[in-house]
Amino acid sequence: MELKVSTRSHAGHALVAITGEIDLYTAPHLQSEFTRLLQEGPSRVVIDMSAVDFCDSTGMNVLLSALKRMKEQGGALDVAAPRPAVRKILQVTGLDSVFTVHDEVPQEFLITEGS
C-alpha cells in the first residue's frame, strides 16, 4: 500500500497527516519528510495518524527518531488520533508513555485554509 504524507506548517507548529501503512518499504519516505520538516525548526509537531491502517516496528522507529530530534531542538512531537491497531502497538511497546498521544488532532492544529 502507498504511503501519503502531507505537512502543513503555521506559526512554528506543523501538522503531519499520514495516510496508508508505515512499514519497512514506506518508512524511508516518512523519514525523509521528517528530516525535511525538522530542518525548518518547528517548535511543535503533531502527527495525525487517523488514516494510518498499520505501523510496524520500522515505522515506530521513524517516529521515535523524529521525537528524539525534536527534543534535541527543544521542541515537542505528539501523536494524534491513532486507530485502534496503531494504539495497541503503542500500548504493547510502551511507547504510549513516551509519546504524548491525543485522541484527536488538537484544535490549534486544525488549520483552516486562509489562516
Rank of each mutant, 00 (worst) to 15 (best):
L38Y: 01
F54D: 01
K88D: 02
L38W: 03
M70G: 04
M60F: 08
L90I: 12
R83C: 11
G41N: 07
G94P: 15
S9E: 05
M1F: 15
A11Y: 12
H29F: 09
E72M: 12
G94R: 15
E113S: 15
E108M: 13
R87N: 07
E104I: 12
N61W: 11
Q31E: 00
V101A: 01
L67F: 05
G59Q: 01
V98L: 10
A80N: 04
Q73E: 01
I89D: 00
V16N: 03
A76N: 09
V5L: 03
H29Y: 07
T19P: 13
V52D: 01
G59M: 01
G12P: 12
D96Q: 08
A81F: 10
G75R: 06
M60G: 05
Q39G: 14
V79L: 06
D96S: 10
A81Q: 05
V52F: 00
S115N: 09
G59Y: 04
D96Y: 13
T19R: 12
N61P: 10
L67I: 13
K68L: 11
E72I: 14
G12I: 11
L95Y: 08
A85D: 00
Q73C: 13
G41W: 02
V101R: 05
Q73T: 11
A66H: 05
L30S: 03
L67W: 03
Q39V: 15
E40N: 10
R69Y: 11
P84F: 02
L95D: 02
L38T: 08
H29N: 08
R8P: 14
D53N: 11
T100N: 01
E2C: 14
F99S: 02
A66Q: 00
I47C: 05
Q107C: 13
M70T: 06
P84A: 00
G20S: 03
E113R: 15
T58Q: 02
A80S: 05
A14K: 04
R44V: 12
V105S: 01
L30R: 06
S9N: 10
G114I: 09
R87W: 13
P28G: 00
K4W: 12
D96T: 13
G59K: 00
Q39Y: 09
A14W: 03
L110F: 10
L30P: 04
L30H: 07
Q73A: 13
G114S: 10
S50G: 12
D78F: 07
A76I: 12
V92S: 03
I22N: 01
L64R: 08
G41K: 10
T26W: 00
T7W: 01
T58A: 01
V46E: 05
Q31M: 09
I111R: 14
L64G: 01
A85W: 03
M60P: 07
R83E: 02
E33M: 13
P106W: 04
P84Y: 02
F54C: 04
R69N: 03
G75W: 05
L30Y: 05
K4Q: 14
S57R: 04
V105R: 08
L15H: 04
A27L: 05
F54H: 01
D56Q: 02
S97G: 12
R36W: 07
T100V: 11
E40A: 11
P28T: 00
Q91N: 09
D23M: 06
A14R: 05
L110E: 06
E108K: 15
V5C: 07
Q107M: 11
E72T: 13
L15S: 00
V46C: 04
A76M: 06
D53H: 10
P106E: 02
Y25W: 15
F34I: 07
